[in-house]
Design a protein around this nucleic acid. Structure first.
Length: 427
RNA sequence: GCGACCAUAGCUCAAGGGCAGAGCACCUGGUUGUGGCCCAGGAGGCUGUGGGUUCGAGCCCCACUGGUCGCCCCA
């Protein structure tokens, strides 16, 4: 048993899994780029206040999931539990409101939440996060959702489901909660589970997406917020749905979808996929028109979404989807005798500097041993050099797949492989 | 934070309270300089950690740590 292990809830992504990651991240960058989103990197930790205020003090994240620590200067810092707050902080700090609006940004990197690990849930996971800041148009909401859509489609996801809701704004949500939802829930409080009675006190909206079986009948008949939106929110929601319908992006209206972050306004959505177990969300997001102001900027609308890369990879594996292989050397040098080894080293050097990956057998093991290594490597072609080849200025090139072997002039080897690979690109 | 199950070689798993093993993977060899299949050999373990019961514990008991899966919540 290894003495040291990766900390609880963290994991190593081993070379054999990297093809999945490179594929997903490459597609994410490419798709975000098509919508005009630019990459940004923000610190892995921020002033604790950025998240406490930005994510919201009533949220699970802030209440019990943050990795908070004091540095040697006594500052309270927190490992980012999500990207949005940090990106908005950067938007404000760098005066991005003077840039052409909206500012479209995306980030990829680790985020941290102190939770009990579970299938698809880790203390460190990787998010792809897109933020469109400075635009109130429902078209921005559509573009954000569309990026998510395009990504999952490009990955060949079979059973994706978009759940959509609008939770109103600071004008229509409080009256709804105060005058409609709470009175209704109070009227049937004896039918609610214990947890939901508590929730009713702390955060009534969250009762709506409860999974408590006993509370279901009450929640199912609850007056949906979407029927109590103000005119602006109603129009915005209708406009977003118009775009989704026009471009045939299937989604399901879920009047009980409420997300756990305080900053959401109007649009909220969550994407789920099959093959994940209990934690089946592969992405989610929404509009956050109040967030920039909360973090000290001018009133500025914004909308964004985040996808969890680990969960995406889990779905790909559950579906049996294999990513395109990573490039790997296709040539392996086998040698016999010290001068031949030197020649192999020099020839491999030439190949590599011509853009062709090459491996050279280490040590001076038997050719059988070297050949075994070659066949276990990524290489399909073995270049064999011994005394005979050396004296003739040649090498033998063996195709491991067909078993065929031909002599090639050493001086022509680079050109020979270039021709071969031009006709037979990898995979 | 709560609950359930689990922990033996790199991986997948055996071992009725009495000598810790197999398959796969890894390394070496099977006569002159050629892989896969096959054969032989090798290496690899304080049985997660610490206590307890017992003449004797991988096995029974307790605690801890970690893993897995749920609850909560989320990506």
């Amino acid at each position: 048993m290894a003495r040291y292990q990766a900390p609880r809830g963290t994991q190593d992504v081993l070379p054999e899994d990297q093809a999945y990651w490179q594929w997903v991240l490459g597609l994410a960058r490419e798709i975000a780029g098509r919508y005009g989103f630019q990459p940004i990197d923000v610190p892995v930790f921020e002033d604790t206040e950025v998240f406490a205020r930005g994510v919201g003090t009533g949220t699970d994240i802030v209440e019990k999931e943050m990795y908070t620590f004091k540095d040697r200067g006594g500052r309270s810092l927190t490992l980012r539990p999500e990207f949005t707050a940090g990106i908005v902080r950067a938007y404000i700090e760098h005066g991005m409101r003077v840039r052409p609006q909206p500012v479209k940004l995306y980030a990829i990197g680790p985020v941290f939440r102190y939770e009990a690990p579970q299938a698809g849930r880790y203390r460190q996971h990787t998010q792809f996060s897109c933020e469109c800041i400075g635009e109130a148009d429902a078209l921005a909401d559509f573009e954000i959702m569309s990026i998510a859509w395009d990504l999952y489609a490009a990955l060949g996801f079979q059973e994706v489901q978009f759940q959509l809701n609008s939770i109103g704004c600071q004008h229509c949500r409080p009256p709804y909660i105060r005058d409609v939802l709470v009175p209704y829930l109070q009227s049937r409080i004896n039918e609610l589970s214990k947890i939901d009675v508590e929730r009713l006190q702390k955060n009534p909206l969250r009762v709506l997406d409860t999974k408590e079986p006993e509370s279901q009948p009450v929640v199912a008949e609850a007056p949906p917020i979407t029927e109590h939106l103000c005119a602006e929110c109603r129009d915005h929601f209708a406009q977003l749905r118009f775009y989704l319908d026009m471009l045939e992006r299937p989604y399901e209206l879920n009047p009980r979808l409420v997300r756990g972050l305080d900053y959401y306004t109007k649009t909220v959505f969550e994407v789920t996929a099959a093959g994940l177990g209990a934690q089946n969300a592969v992405g989610g997001g929404g509009r956050y028109d109040g967030l920039v102001e909360v973090l000290g900027g001018p009133p500025t609308p914004g909308v964004g979404f985040a996808a969890g890369i680990e969960r995406i990879v889990l779905v790909l594996k559950a579906q049996g989807t294999t990513p395109p292989p990573l490039p790997a050397p296709r040539v392996y040098f086998v040698h016999h005798g010290s001068p031949a080894k030197d020649a192999a080293v020099a020839l491999a050097d030439q190949l590599r500097h011509s853009g062709i990956g090459a491996l050279v057998a280490f040590g001076n093991r038997s050719m059988k041993s070297q050949m075994r290594q070659a066949s276990k490597s990524s290489a399909r072609y073995v270049v064999i050099i011994g005394e005979e080849e050396l004296s003739r200025g040649e090498v033998q090139v063996k195709d491991l797949q067909t078993g065929q072997q031909v002599a090639v002039r050493q001086a022509e080897l680079v050109q020979w492989f270039q021709n071969l690979f031009a006709q037979h690109p990898p995979q």
